[in-house]
């Protein structure tokens, strides 16, 4: 695979440093929930560095989402482990938690002024618009790829999952479990069909 050969070109300490700086950078600028950080990780590790392919990134997202704990931390554990084993996992986690630890430590000393500052609020509002744009950009990339597969079940899962989470606030875990059940059923139906042939 192309991505493995490119991995071997850089030495391990260099890769760990790159991993640390990438997760640090992504975490420092990620406002909002776990999905925001995942879209940025996808841009960095899939599109830019080519360390992980897109399908695997989606699998890791599903794993990160259905495990306990913060999605951003879970995703960095999975990506770090995938890229550099156990040292990679520790490196990525430290890179991810360091920015919030530092920011919150500083803010805890003057939090009342920070929370009520009008200019801070305005800048954050503008950044929300940017975050939304980044997420839609990634959704377009991934969504178009799924639509190109032209599989009816994929269309159905996409539409049903979106309706369930956006309009009915169904717990994410149930949505992932339901999709897993559809996938399992699909596997058994396919196997039966093949046996009949």
């Amino acid at each position: 695979m192309a991505e493995n050969s490119s991995n071997e070109k850089i030495s391990k300490p260099k890769m760990l440093l790159k991993l640390f700086l990438s997760t640090l950078y992504i975490s420092a600028f990620t406002f909002g929930g776990g999905f925001v950080i995942i879209t940025l990780m996808k841009k960095k590790f899939v599109d830019e560095l080519h360390w992980i392919d897109e399908d695997e990134m989606l699998d890791l997202t599903a794993l990160a989402q259905s495990s306990p704990g913060a999605v951003a931390v879970n995703a960095s554990i999975l990506i770090g482990k995938r890229i550099c084993g156990f040292p990679g996992m520790i490196t990525a986690v430290i890179g991810t938690v360091l920015p919030p630890i530092i920011t919150l430590s500083v803010i805890s000393f003057f939090y009342a002024e920070f929370a009520s500052n009008r200019y801070v609020a305005l800048a954050l509002k503008g950044m929300q618009a940017g975050v939304a744009a980044v997420i839609f950009d990634v959704v377009c990339d991934m969504g178009l790829k799924i639509l190109k597969n032209k599989k009816f079940t994929d269309y159905f899962i996409l539409a049903a999952a979106f309706t369930a989470t956006f309009f009915f606030n169904v717990n994410v875990i149930f949505i992932i479990l339901a999709a897993a059940v559809i996938g399992t059923a699909g596997a058994f139906i396919n196997r039966r069909r093949e046996k009949r042939k």
Binding site: G33, F35, V36, I38, T39, D55, L58, D59, T61, A62, Q65, A132, I135, F136, V138, V139, M142, G143, I146, T153, D154, Y155, I157, L158, A159, A160, A161, F162, T165, F166, V172, I175, I176, A178, A179, A180, I182, G183, T184, G186, A187, N190
Partner: peptide, 18 residues
């Protein structure tokens, strides 16, 4: 098969968050 049906669900979840 399970993973390939999780992928559209994950895309839908990200779209909804956005």
């Amino acid at each position: 098969s399970v993973l390939s049906s999780l992928r559209p669900a994950v895309v839908a979840l990200i779209a909804s968050a956005g």
